[in-house]
Design a protein around this nucleic acid. Sequence first.
DNA 1: CCGCATCCATGTCGATACTG
DNA 2: CAGTATCGACATGGATGCGG
Lengths: 132, 132
Amino acid sequence: MTDYLRKEVKNKLINGDYSCAKEFTLSMFSGKWKIVILYHLGIDGIYRFGELKRLLPQASNKMLTKQLREMEADGIISRTIYPEIPVRVDYSITDLGQSLIPIIVAMYEWGEERLKSMKQDVKFSINEEAIK
Amino acid sequence: MTDYLRKEVKNKLINGDYSCAKEFTLSMFSGKWKIVILYHLGIDGIYRFGELKRLLPQASNKMLTKQLREMEADGIISRTIYPEIPVRVDYSITDLGQSLIPIIVAMYEWGEERLKSMKQDVKFSINEEAIK
DNA sequence: CCGCATCCATGTCGATACTG
DNA sequence: CAGTATCGACATGGATGCGG
């Protein structure tokens, strides 16, 4: 829903509907590859376009570019072009982007916990099967 | 991207790729209306289907139902049917869903702050215009 | 090397009408 | 009341090829 969400939130903001603060935050990193890119840039540091591509082999050029451009427009990452030949482009997180990292870390931890307890449940049901 | 995200994450989980904990968490509330519904159920308490509809006038039956069913399947909300006539259905948040509320509150607060400083920037540029 | 442009299959969402 | 069914418009994302 990402593009849709971005458009919706923009419309709401234009129409003065400021009751959508959480949707606004969500629209920052809810996009294909966005949360992963942001996490890497926040934790690891600077990446070049090609490095991100290798990091996300499933992402097409088109999608990767789109996500990066949107995050740049939102001010959470920055893009630096070095007009060498061949061209070189660096991506890094901004201070604003960095301020989102705690939330993403919280999401990471929640996910880890949840996955752990889901594995537990699987073990339990296997044991129950064994008892029968 | 929501449905896509859900499918992707499910596939990743099936394939034993447990390195996607944040995407997994994201898939819990990244869906049309999900974060708003979850927030209301978490803060206000129980809602009936019709009440949610009135709360989200833009949401169609189809979408509202879909989002509620998915969140139920994910175990973050629960659905109770009272076989009266006419039928009555209550939706409430589960303990698991409640454990997501701090993250959503953090997102709400980040959004509020961000919107505030964006308004500030608008004021600044208006003042600059006035100075000229 | 880092993209953008185009085409096309698929997916998503709204509107409307109908049911137990 | 609380949904389901169906149809059609629209958007999304993958593949490919081109360009500075």
